[in-house]
């Protein structure tokens, strides 16, 4: 699946975007299937806004975002749900776990959403939890977890479903270097396994992945 951005301008940041040169805003971009895309963005340049546009949960923009040539507004609610279950996955900056569920249940919710035969086996989930060193907190309520633990649960949750694109908004912001490296390795494995690409936004440049494309927001 290719993602095309065509002169995308967020309405609230319009004046700012038009004054400064940006590698993404108001440009025509195409990301090919399987590409690892890195977007460096200082605070306040609309990093999270871009992610929400890409994942189609905010719509206050001009220009267009197209998946395989089809702009987002042409998809019905059911088609959007289908895409989010089978083709697009996301790690939000604010994580968005359900506090009333345990960590395991949060992961399982996403796993069982498309049916009782999950894409990812229970053993694989345990492996991922082991790799990110969160096995011991899987049955705790999400409310009681630290930010770092939540972030790792959110990463696992994003990886238990089938996808061709993974959107990540500062996915390692609460992790130390060791855990960041482990998480990056896990994400790389899962993307390679699916031949999927990702779009990652962060404040600084980094060497966590072998990026194919770099942009400055």
């Amino acid at each position: 699946m290719t993602i095309q951005l065509d002169h995308l301008i967020p309405v609230p940041l319009r004046d700012k975007v038009l004054q400064q040169a940006s590698g993404v805003w108001n440009q025509a971009l195409t990301w090919q299937a399987g590409q690892f895309v890195k977007i460096n963005a200082p605070s306040g340049t609309g990093k999270t806004t871009l992610m929400h546009y890409l994942y189609n949960i905010r719509y206050d923009y001009t220009g267009s975002i197209s998946l395989d040539g089809r702009p987002w507004p042409t998809f019905s609610k059911n088609e959007v749900a289908g895409l989010r279950q089978q083709q697009l996955s996301v790690i939000f900056q604010d994580l968005r776990l359900f506090d009333q569920l345990t960590a395991w249940e949060n992961i399982n919710l996403k796993r069982s959403m498309s049916g009782d035969q999950p894409f990812c086996s229970e053993e694989r989930v345990q492996e991922m939890a082991g790799a990110l060193q969160v096995s011991h907190i899987l049955h705790q309520s999400a409310k009681t977890l630290s930010y770092g633990e939540r972030q790792r649960i959110a990463i696992i949750r994003a990886l238990v479903q089938p996808f061709v694109w993974l959107f990540m908004d500062e996915p390692f912001s609460h992790l130390d270097e060791v855990n960041t490296a482990r998480a990056a390795q896990l994400i790389t494995e899962e993307c390679r396994h699916r031949q999927a690409g990702f779009v990652l936004t962060d404040l600084d440049t980094d060497q966590h992945f072998d990026y194919h494309v770099h942009h400055h927001l």
Partner: peptide
């Protein structure tokens, strides 16, 4: 949030 995570309104 459920819809954001991909739950269909029909579900």
């Amino acid at each position: 949030l459920l819809v954001i995570l991909g739950a269909a309104p029909g579900q």
